[in-house]
Design a protein around this nucleic acid. Structure first.
Lengths: 341, 341
DNA sequence: CTGAAAGCGCTTACAG
DNA sequence: CTGAAAGCGCTTACAG
């Protein structure tokens, strides 16, 4: 009557019960270490379970317990070989999520969503996703916006979202970029160009705002032609830097909102025989491992990805449990001053 | 009578059935797009499901279908900030696992095991793990050995294992290291030292064997004092390189079985004023992103981590389905000759 | 300390 | 095209 079974010879409580001469109920209680089971029974049941190679059917367990105990970590796929940033962030973040999940006995399911997926909502429905951490999405993607309209518990990393059962873990990008640009100015530079990422990324907007605030605070003019998109890519940053310096030879510093762009920027500067930081200073953002290996060592702003994951998991479970919490967690960064400014 | 429910107001088939004036059975069929349901019914049911925000209870679905459709990706935790190799490998591997899992409609659960975990077997039992991909373990860890004795389907990455329902995805380390060392010899070097990792790692043993084979093939003597452990660490490699060169000033090349050690080795060589590769050549293994950013650019051997993940997932599901397969998948690498030899 | 029973939410063979 | 029924494997309130 029923379809394929879970392997031919999966061991169930029934098998143990038969072997032990007990009821299924008592075996369940023994295995779950209830107080009202005799020591001898517990031992006997455990021995039989081991000898039979029993593994609990987690689906049945969850069905009856009425819990999912799942955190779905949904990543908008980044397949760009060039861009290893997320790869480094990714492990640290997963590690943070797992740390918290493990404490609470949740399990973490990973989904890497292809941008070609027709509907994220349908993706969620089909997979029974009820507790999601979102990472790597573009805030103006209509499919992402549609997703935010469903009632599923969600915590989004790096993008502020709101609504019922929604939360965000973000970094105060604007604040730390203001700090970074002020540090450049304090080092004696006046004509600071900005290499930003893409208008589809919230971080671009926030970090650019920090740049503008710093200049304003320091009473320096904001020149719109100093502000250029480089799509978060090293190669694009290289070209744009060359172009900017050709058009505006007075530029004496670059603030790049990602380290990869900063590295492309540095390569361009060195390629035309200028000295970093004496002629032109460079500052990045992210603190990718490579930034300590380039010459000169790149000054940048470090993010704590492990914490992002950990806090996202914590917030998500709080939301699931209907706890009263601040739905926006803001994490700290730290400036890393090295040799490039 | 029953404990906490899955949220107060989880929508079930029953709710939809009531709203639609249909039986639960028919709603199930409609939602699963069976042939024998009228178009109108399907549409009506789908509309109601959407308006109610229905999400399938995946545990109930799996229980009745008798499937787990889960791949448990179990990583022995690496928390060493210094060692970013695995972090890069990790994302690529997860991506590969997900690619295959997604095609087969499996989901991927991530577990990051702490070495402090008392029993891996118990960890597996408690979580109902039946289909595991193992990564990052040490083959001589007794808890790992114990784990291999249980009947759970397992595929291990980078460590050959065997037994019923077991498989491995490995790289022919010995072969590619032979190639690498031959390339060093062909570049004109004769006194080649080896920086190996740790005797607890299978890759160390395999890669060292490749070194020995290359020397033997080329009729060069094997000097045991040229072979030194550096624990896969950049800083240790730095020290050991200094020591080796002091003891054996005739050394004109280093083969390092990881890029991180190669980078430490290069730093040591440069620190004493020697020129790479003219005075001393260096070759690594892994092709981490940083290897293209150091000066001179590091020659190394590239591994394809995405493929490791993809093949591991494929093999695991084949094993689960009792297909006749070769339990050992051997993947190719590729030599990357750059400027350091 | 233990067993019989009910029920979690879903799917499908069976019988119309 | 549809409904009633059985059953997946587990857990616990209830009644001894």
């Amino acid at each position: 009557m029923f379809p394929k079974r879970l392997g031919e010879n999966m061991i169930t409580l029934k098998d143990i019960a038969k072997e032990a001469g007990l009821s299924v109920a008592q075996v369940s209680r023994a295995l779950n270490d209830h107080d009202d089971v005799s020591k001898e029974t517990k031992q006997k049941v455990e021995d039989i379970a081991n000898s039979l190679g029993y593994v609990k059917n987690i689906s049945a367990h969850r069905l009856v317990m009425g819990v999912s105990n799942r955190i779905d970590f949904v990543v908008q796929g980044f397949t760009d070989e060039d861009n290893m940033l997320e790869h480094n962030e990714f492990y640290a973040m997963i590690n943070g999520v797992n740390k918290y999940a493990n404490e609470k006995r949740y399990e973490v399911i990973i989904y890497i969503l292809q941008p070609t997926e027709k509907s994220y909502v349908q993706f969620f429905r089909e997979r029974g996703i009820r507790n999601a951490i979102l990472y790597g999405f573009e805030y103006d993607d209509p499919k992402f916006q549609e997703l935010l309209s469903i009632t599923c518990n969600m915590v989004c990393i790096d993008i502020p979202i709101n609504g019922e059962n929604k939360g965000s873990v973000i970094v105060n990008n604007t604040h730390y970029c203001t700090q970074a640009v002020e540090a450049i100015i304090n080092s004696g530079k006046q004509n600071i160009a900005l290499l930003t990422g893409s208008p589809h990324a919230v971080v671009s907007i926030e970090r650019e705002a920090g740049y503008r605030i710093a200049l304003t605070k320091k009473k320096l003019p904001i020149k719109e032609n100093y502000i250029v998109d480089a799509d978060f890519r090293q190669s694009v940053a290289y070209e744009k830097t060359l172009y900017l310096l050709q058009q505006n030879p007075e530029i004496d510093a670059f603030f790049c909102i990602s380290d990869y762009m900063a590295i492309g920027c540095m390569e361009a500067i060195l390629s035309i025989g200028k000295v970093i930081p004496d002629d032109i200073a460079v500052m990045g953002f992210d603190d990718i491992p490579i930034s300590r290996y380039v010459t000169p060592k790149l000054s940048t702003v470090k993010q704590y990805s492990f914490n992002k994951g950990f806090e996202a998991a914590k917030l998500l479970i709080q939301i699931e449990n209907k706890e009263q919490v601040n739905p926006t967690v803001i994490l700290n960064c730290e400036m890393q001053l090295r040799d490039s400014i």
